[in-house]
C-alpha cells in the first residue's frame, strides 16, 4: 500500500488524490517535491559521505547538473541539525551503524522538503532503544516541521504510544483512528490468532499467553 501511495507501484483499484489532484497527474519532479520516502532497501553506494547522501535529497530543486545552491546547502544543514548528525556528517556510510544510517536516511528525506514523508518499516533491524529513538524522532519532526509522516510498522505497542492516528490493516476489516479509540473499539483484539498473544487494553500492549 505504501508503495502505491509513493507511486512506486500502480494501484490495484481505486483513486489516490494529493492536494485534490489525482496522483497520476503529477510529473516525477512535482511528486518529488511533495512526497519523500525512506525505504527498507539498502543503498548500493556505501562510499558516499553522510552529507553527500543527504544532499542528494535536494535533487528535485537543483539545476541540470545538480549544483547545490545556497538554499540547498541551508536545507541540508537544517536537516542535519534537526536530527543531530553534526558529529558524523563527514563519515562514510559504510562506517555507520544501522541506527545511524536510518537517521541519515530520514535526514535525506527531510532535506527533500516535502509535505509528506513515507517510511517503509523504519524500525526493522534496530534494537528496542533505537526503535523508540527513531519513532520519537519522527514524532518530533512531525510536530516541529508540520509534515505528514506516514509509516508502516510491526511495533504495534510503540505505535500506540506515539502515533496520532493508526490504520490497522486486517484481511477482513481494517480500522482507522486515534490509538485510544481503536483500543476502545477492540481493533487490536483479533489482529493475531489468540493462541499465543492477547491484547491488554488497559496497558495498550500485547502479552504472551503462558
Amino acid at each position: 500500500m505504501l508503495r502505491t501511495l509513493a507511486r512506486v507501484q500502480p494501484a490495484l483499484s481505486g483513486d489516490i488524490t494529493l492536494k485534490n489532484e489525482p496522483l497520476h497527474t503529477y510529473t516525477g519532479i512535482q511528486l518529488a517535491t511533495e512526497i519523500s520516502v525512506v525505504l527498507t532497501e539498502h543503498i548500493p553506494a556505501k562510499n558516499l559521505t553522510v552529507i553527500e547522501l543527504i544532499a542528494l535529497g535536494r535533487q528535485p530543486y537543483t539545476n541540470w547538473v545538480g549544483t547545490l545552491s545556497q538554499v540547498d546547502k541551508q536545507k541540508v544543514n537544517e536537516a542535519i541539525s534537526l536530527i543531530g548528525l553534526e558529529t558524523i556528517k563527514h563519515k562514510k556510510c559504510y562506517e555507520l551503524s544501522d541506527g545511524q544510517l536510518q537517521r541519515v536516511m530520514i535526514a535525506r528525506a527531510l532535506s527533500q522538503d516535502t509535505s509528506i514523508i513515507i517510511l517503509d518499516e523504519p524500525t526493522t533491524h534496530l534494537d528496542i532503544y533505537h526503535k523508540a529513538y527513531v519513532l520519537n524522532l519522527l514524532k518530533r519532526i512531525a510536530r516541529e516541521t508540520e509534515k505528514a509522516i506516514l509509516f508502516s510498522t510491526h511495533e504495534i505497542d510503540m505505535a500506540i504510544q506515539l502515533c496520532d492516528k493508526i490504520l490497522v490493516l486486517d484481511t477482513e476489516n481494517s480500522s482507522f483512528g486515534e490509538p485510544c479509540s481503536l483500543i476502545e473499539k477492540g481493533s487490536f483484539q483479533h489482529l493475531f490468532p489468540g493462541d499465543l498473544v492477547s491484547f491488554d487494553s488497559n496497558s495498550g500492549t500485547f502479552k504472551i499467553n503462558k
Partner: peptide, 24 residues
Amino acid sequence: TVISIKSLNAFLLGENYARSIGVN
C-alpha cells in the same frame, strides 16, 4: 554523459530512491 550526471548520482541510491527524487 554530462547531461546524465545528475541522474547518475541519483542512481547511487538505487532505482527506487532515484525515482522518488524525481528521476525519470
